[in-house]
Every structure is written in structure tokens, then in C-alpha cells.
Design a protein around this nucleic acid. Structure first.
Lengths: 126, 126
DNA sequence: CCTATTGGTAACTGATCAGTTACCTATCTG
DNA sequence: CAGATAGGTAACTGATCAGTTACCAATAGG
């Protein structure tokens, strides 16, 4: 399953964030959410299919933990959107933030510090 | 609308990637996708609601362009998942990749270079 | 002024999603 | 061994999504 689709649901995002703090069982996670245990179980299955979590069976208990490698496609998209050609005119991307990814063993593009981040030319409010 | 939900659809992701390469009109984008023009129009509206694109009206033409600032919540989630406590045991996150975000004007946590990235302890295949 | 182009939305349809209850299996504890 | 705990899935229901065709409005060009 697509990690983007997996992260589209607020419950699944909560689960992923919670598991970033350490492994947990279905019953633990169900206690922290207003939905039923089978619903949590189904969300965890989708997260596992997306490669975002891993399950370790310990007797009758199944401990779920975050699989950070599963976030790679999401990080890749941010990189792709960040590095694509930007017009020399003022561009409002990541005001106050400069996302930088260093790829081990790969040549890097010009460093973030050489890339200006002018203030927003235009803000969209939908 | 939630930027995560906006990016969950493959068509919308394609549109966002395409717009990263420069602005475009609905008719341009519709020519590059197998779905109908009204479907493209609806996707662009959702992307705008999510803050991921901006529309500039030029006569009868509406030029859509990427709004990188709208990606902030996605970048924030990656940061949150990356920075949360990781057990000292080997952790497989971002093998070969080290995501680092420098927040202007904010104290930084210990730099990425001080954070080890050991090889994967366990790989999940769902 | 008429035609062409651009583009948004209504209404419809089929597909998918998310939560529930019920049920079942596996493992642990007294 | 019986009861308790943990957890997955089937079946169901209501809600939402994504693509279509049809229609309309605004702007540009001949």
C-alpha cells in the first residue's frame, strides 16, 4: 500500500507518531483512541502494508513499532519538490525553514546555504 | 483540506510534481493526464484547499503553481518521526539518508552528524 | 458580433473507506 | 483445565471519493 495513502488518515498518523515514541500493542493503542480495537487493528495492518510499521509477535502479544525506512518515499517527494527548478523571482517556499537532505555516497547539489529563501511573493488562502 | 489527504491521490501527486517544474493551466495539465479536464479541475481545487498550489488568473486563463510552504506539515511530520527517541539498539531509519532540518532562529537539537544511523535490525515485508 | 477557448460546478455512478458488532483463534494465568 | 487476555477478520452500514457528461460563464480572437 502507498505510504501517502497510509498517512492520509488522521488516526493512522496518530498511530505512527505514537509508535515513534516506542513500540506498543493493539490494546495499548486502542486505549488511547476513541475507536474500537478492530478498527485500530485494521489501521495497523494498512500501515504495515505501507511499510511504515513492523509487528513483532511475543506470545499472544503483537508489538508494533515504527519502520522509519518506510518514510523514504515521502522524504523523496519533499526532496523532488524542493530541488526542482525554481524561478529566480521571489519564491515563498519554506520561509524560515530550509530542508536539506544529504545523500550518503552521492554528489550533492549546491548546498542549502547557497540557495536563497526570499519572503513570500503571494500567499494563497483557500 | 489536509495536505496529507491531498497527496494521497496519485493524480494529485503527479500534478504537484509537474507544477514543481513551473506553472501550468488546467488545459495543459489535462493534456498530460488520461482523465477528464473537470477531474483535473477538481483535483487542483483540492490541492489549493490544502495550500499546496496557488492560482493566478490571467484573463480567461488560470495559471496554477506549486506553493512549497504548503508542504510544511509533511516536512514537520518527517522531522517529528525522525527526532523522537530512538532506542540505542540498531535502527534502520533512512539508511544512506540523513534528513536534517535547520529552523531559522530556533535552537537546534544535536546535529545529524552526531546521530548514528546503524544498519537495519529488521526489515518488514507486508 | 460570433466563434473559440478556458475553466468551474452540478448531478450522476461506481468504487472505496472507516467504524461497528460478532466471532474465532492463540496464548497466558490461576 | 477453565477463565482471562490479546488480536485478527467477516459482514454490515453509512460516508466519502473519483471520474464522467452536460451545462454555463468569462475572456480572447477573427
Amino acid at each position: 500500500m502507498d505510504p501517502f495513502v497510509a498517512l492520509a488518515d488522521p488516526v493512522r498518523r496518530d498511530l505512527v507518531v505514537r509508535l515513534a515514541g516506542g513500540p506498543a500493542r493493539v490494546v495499548d493503542l486502542a486505549a488511547e483512541h476513541p475507536i474500537s480495537r478492530p478498527a485500530i487493528s485494521r489501521h495497523l495492518r494498512l500501515l504495515a502494508e505501507a511499510g511504515l510499521v513492523t509487528a513483532d509477535d511475543l506470545g499472544r502479544e503483537r508489538h508494533y513499532r515504527l519502520e522509519r525506512a518506510g518514510l523514504q518515499p515521502v522524504a523523496d517527494l519533499l526532496v523532488a519538490l524542493r530541488e526542482t527548478p525554481v524561478p529566480p523571482i521571489a519564491d515563498a517556499d519554506f520561509d524560515g525553514l530550509d530542508l536539506e537532505v544529504r545523500r550518503t555516497g552521492r554528489d550533492r547539489r549546491s548546498s542549502a546555504s547557497s540557495h536563497p529563501s526570499p519572503s513570500a511573493a503571494q500567499e494563497d488562502t483557500a
